[in-house]
C-alpha cells in the first residue's frame, strides 16, 4: 500500500513536472545558452539541443503514459471514471 501510494505520487509529480520542465528548457533564457555558432558533428548546437530536449520529453511522456495505464488510481480525483456512469 505504502509503495503504491508513493508510486502514484511520484507518477503524478512526473506528469506535472514534464510539461513545466520541457517549457522551461525550451524557453529563453535557458535556450539562449545553446544559441552559439559551434557545432556537434556538423550539426549546430541549437539544433542538437532542441531536438534532444524534444526526444527526452517524448521518452518521459512514454513513461508517464505507461504509468498512468498501470496506476489508474494515481489521481485521487480520477478514482472513478465518469464514463462508467452512463
Amino acid at each position: 500500500m505504502g509503495t503504491r501510494r508513493s508510486d502514484g505520487q511520484g507518477f503524478r509529480d512526473l506528469a506535472v513536472m514534464l510539461p513545466i520542465s520541457a517549457a522551461l528548457l525550451l524557453m529563453p533564457p535557458l535556450i539562449r545558452i545553446f544559441a552559439t555558432p559551434g557545432t556537434l558533428g556538423g550539426i549546430p548546437w541549437i539544433v542538437v539541443y532542441i531536438f534532444a530536449v524534444w526526444a527526452a520529453a517524448i521518452l518521459v511522456a512514454i513513461a508517464v503514459a505507461r504509468h498512468a495505464h498501470q496506476a489508474p488510481g494515481g489521481d485521487p480525483e480520477a478514482r472513478s471514471d465518469p464514463t462508467e456512469r452512463r
Binding site: R12, A15, V16, P19, A22, L26, A57, V60
Partner: peptide
Amino acid sequence: YLGPVVVFAGWWL
C-alpha cells in the same frame, strides 16, 4: 510544434 509538444506531454494537467 514545441507548443503542442508541451501541451500534449502535459496532458495530465
